[in-house]
Design a protein around this nucleic acid. Structure first.
Lengths: 225, 225
DNA sequence: ATATTATGACTGACCAGTCAGTCATATTGA
DNA sequence: TCAATATGACTGACTGGTCAGTCATAATAT
């Protein structure tokens, strides 16, 4: 929910720089920011709202003025982090560019806006906690994953129609395009201290291999028992 | 509480030598099995050892006869689930087979022994909880991920040497081979109810595309700002 | 008999969520 | 303009419940 910009009474004065509502919104943001740090570091169950409050410089009760309960705080955190990129996700499909350009654009968006920011920690959170928070999983699927897949299918189908690519299997599994990105997100949290992984270079290599393969005619599938 | 049923009636004893050690081991296994169910469903922090005990048909104190504490139980759970496949991981590299055969073998191992079993839930657990349990992450890296990567690099390097593949970028990023498998593990927990994903078919498609691409000569990399 | 293993009631720490009270700011009225 | 009054955002001590880990006691095996 985005109940920002409350009632603005009739003669809404635009001059006032610091009305109550503004202060209040700032606190809400501070709480979400603090919740992000704590939830990322400890996971949902192990996070103490006392710590969130302290980090936000706020009393615990204040959290409950802005959020129903711990779970709603978590959901709002995910919403507010992912909301801003939702629009961008669907943009790529409308540009009538060649396949490589369109896909590189989407991949670039992912590398820049997710892997390159703390949003990757949000993705990790969704992966970790999502199964226990149907609302979060649904929001994430409806607003990000589902749309991104649809956009990619659209782009890919167009490329097939144009004859840019010969192998249509990728239209069935557009997930293959982003899989290394997901792996990179997971890797960064788990294994970076054992072995560094250059996510952008890997993504680059991946797309380059993939495009090469897609331009070849599809082979017959081997029958499998 | 569930049926206790622990009073081995005098008659039952003559059949086999049921030494204490055997009974004890069986209980340990039951506890680990129960812990698996509970940890998978709720995550580490939200799992109650009371529930684990009940599910295992054991009193809570019994858990502490086998494991130091909750964390050790969790670690042992991961160990015991992943242990059996460690050996297999390194086997593939010694067979002197063509690339496609070797890699398909590894991929088959993954699909069969991980995606096809409840081990995928263990992987999910490691992904979710690993960042907060360095011991688990390290065990997983040292015994599974690291070895698998090394084995794959070995196989791939040999294929390069033989001229089976022309593009050596994959030697640098063998992660690209398994990325869709990881995505499938995550997908199954989060999004299966919105959109089914045929992991094996996707893996098949992926490897087929990848092999095709690898047989082509590498192109020049585009310089990037 | 007695050593080993199992039990489950118990303890103490911990923490989400509450609510009576405070106080800075806004509104009103003269 | 500036008390007097109203508002509601904010506070933090408190409650009720939960749960990891303990240990005195009981069951069982040898």
């Amino acid at each position: 929910m985005l109940p920002r910009a409350h009632k603005r009474t009739a003669a809404s004065r635009e001059s006032r720089p610091n009305p109550r509502a503004e202060r209040s919104a700032a606190r809400r943001d501070a709480i979400i920011e603090a919740a992000f740090e704590e939830f990322s570091a400890r996971g949902f169950a192990a996070t103490r709202l006392d710590d969130v409050a302290q980090r936000a410089g706020v009393a615990k009760g204040t959290i409950y003025l802005h959020f129903q309960d711990k779970e709603e705080l978590f959901q709002e955190l995910v919403r507010s982090a992912l909301g801003p990129i939702i629009a961008q996700v669907e943009l790529a499909q409308f540009a009538d560019a060649p396949l490589r350009v369109s896909i590189n654009q989407l991949a670039g968006l992912f590398v820049r806006e997710v892997l390159g920011t703390r949003r990757k920690d949000i993705i990790r959170l969704v992966i970790s906690e999502g199964p226990r928070f149907p609302k979060v999983a649904e929001f994430y699927y409806s607003n990000i994953v589902g749309r991104a897949l649809a956009a990619m299918r659209h782009i890919l189908q167009r490329a097939v129609d144009r004859g840019e690519i010969k192998n249509r299997i990728i239209v069935r599994f557009p997930q293959l395009i982003v899989a290394p990105g997901i792996l990179a997100v997971i890797w960064s949290g788990l294994f970076d201290r054992f072995e560094e992984l250059d996510a952008e270079a890997m993504m680059q290599a991946h797309l380059s291999l993939l495009f090469d393969a897609l331009e070849l005619p599809a082979k017959k599938t081997k029958a499998r028992a």
